[in-house]
Amino acid sequence: MPSPSSSPLSALTSRDAVVAALRAAGCVFAEDEAELILAAGAPHEVASMVGRRTAGLPLELVVGWARFGGLRITVEPGVFVPRRRTEFLVEQALAQAPSAAVVVDLCCGSGAVGAALAAGLGEAELHAADIDPAAVRCARRNVACRGGRVHTGDLFEALPGELRGRVDILAANVPYVPSAEIGLLPPEARDHEPRVALDGGADGLDVLRRVASGAPGWLAPGGCLLVEAGRRQASAAVDAFTAAGLRPRLAVCEERYAHVVIGVRP
């Protein structure tokens, strides 16, 4: 393998050269990506950043941040990159509980959902949790500035007991890809994001069912659980909410290919 000094990437000294390199690697939005890379890196770093991007690393991990809900969210290698379609979950949560005082972002990853909810609500007590220590470290960078606390552990086991029966919004961006379909994901996700953030078990709903089952004990009366699911899973996800004793409804945004199941504690 050639060293960086002998690689053609070392000749990247202009926007046009960066665009050409990205386009040659198949980046559809080469011009936009070039602008972000050039803005994020010092001149001596650009060639290395372009090399990582053309090797398949998600753009967000190359530049170190992702735009989500109007916020700039720090992302780090080994952490799930927040998807723009998940902004629909945040919008639904804010519409369902615009005066929420206590918010939990479960399976938080980078903490993007919790940070966006806190920004939309203003004065809210925010907790986030994830089983992956790398995600917890990253989330702390995104929620600490909003007074949020981040906990490490498996779903509800991570949360302080004082939250039982007090949560107004419980947002859980659970893994929901069926195990057998992980190999069909785009390389950016399959090769560079943690499997624990993607793999939802045989039908993709293993974690969703666990969250739905445990949610009523943590929600305040009238509090809501919101979970993203795939189109094919939506009906089964609604059934899981019903079985847990929640009043469910399905919200769909076709433009963003987003399906969010919302369950309210009676």
Rank of each mutant, 00 (worst) to 15 (best):
Arg146Gln: 12
Gly147His: 10
Val150Asp: 13
His151Arg: 12
Gly153Tyr: 04
Gly153Ile: 08
Gly153Leu: 04
Gly153Trp: 06
Asp154Thr: 13
Asp154His: 14
Leu155Lys: 11
Leu155Phe: 09
Leu155Arg: 12
Phe156Ile: 11
Glu157Arg: 15
Glu157Ser: 15
Leu159Tyr: 10
Leu159Asp: 01
Pro160Val: 12
Pro160Gln: 11
Gly161Phe: 03
Glu162Phe: 00
Glu162Cys: 12
Glu162Asp: 13
Glu162Ile: 04
Leu163His: 13
Leu163Tyr: 09
Arg164Trp: 02
Arg164Cys: 01
Arg164Met: 06
Gly165Val: 04
Arg166Tyr: 07
Arg166Ser: 03
Val167Ala: 02
Val167Met: 02
Asp168Met: 01
Asp168Arg: 00
Asp168Ser: 09
Leu170Ala: 03
Leu170Met: 05
Ala171Asp: 06
Ala171Met: 04
Ala171Glu: 08
Val174Leu: 09
Pro175Met: 12
Tyr176Asp: 10
Tyr176Gln: 11
Tyr176Met: 07
Tyr176Glu: 13
Val177His: 05
Val177Gln: 10
Pro178His: 02
Ala180Gln: 15
Ala180Trp: 14
Glu181Ala: 15
Glu181Ile: 01
Ile182Pro: 05
Ile182His: 05
Gly183Gln: 09
Gly183Thr: 08
Gly183Glu: 14
Leu185Glu: 03
Leu185Gly: 10
Leu185Gln: 05
Pro186Ser: 10
Pro186Gln: 08
Pro186Trp: 04
Pro187Met: 01
Pro187Thr: 14
Pro187Gln: 11
Glu188Cys: 00
Glu188His: 04
Glu188Ala: 15
Arg190Asp: 10
Arg190Asn: 09
Arg190Tyr: 12
Asp191Ile: 11
Asp191Lys: 11
Asp191Ala: 13
Asp191Gly: 00
His192Ala: 11
His192Ser: 01
His192Arg: 01
His192Phe: 15
Glu193Thr: 11
Pro194Asn: 06
Pro194Met: 12
Ala197Tyr: 03
Gly200Glu: 10
Gly201Ala: 10
Gly201Cys: 09
Ala202Asn: 10
Ala202Ile: 13
Gly204His: 10
Gly204Lys: 09
Gly204Ala: 13
Gly204Ile: 08
Asp206Ala: 15
Asp206His: 08
Val207Pro: 08
Val207His: 00
Leu208Gln: 03
Arg210Thr: 06
Arg210Asn: 07
Arg210Trp: 12
Ala212Val: 08
Ser213Met: 12
Ser213Val: 13
Ser213Trp: 09
Gly214Asn: 00
Gly214Asp: 01
Ala215Glu: 11
Ala215Trp: 05
Gly217Cys: 05
Gly217Asp: 13
Gly217Asn: 08
Trp218Leu: 04
Trp218Ile: 00
Leu219Cys: 09
Leu219His: 06
Leu219Gly: 09
Leu219Lys: 07
Pro221Asn: 09
Gly223Trp: 04
Gly223Thr: 04
Gly223Ser: 07
Gly223Ala: 08
Leu225Arg: 00
Leu225Pro: 05
Leu226Ser: 07
Leu226Glu: 09
Leu226Ile: 11
Val227Arg: 11
Glu228His: 09
Glu228Gln: 06
Arg232Pro: 03
Gln233Lys: 07
Gln233Cys: 01
Gln233Trp: 11
Ala234Gln: 03
Ser235Glu: 15
Ser235Val: 15
Ala236Gln: 14
Ala236Asp: 15
Ala236Val: 07
Ala236Gly: 08
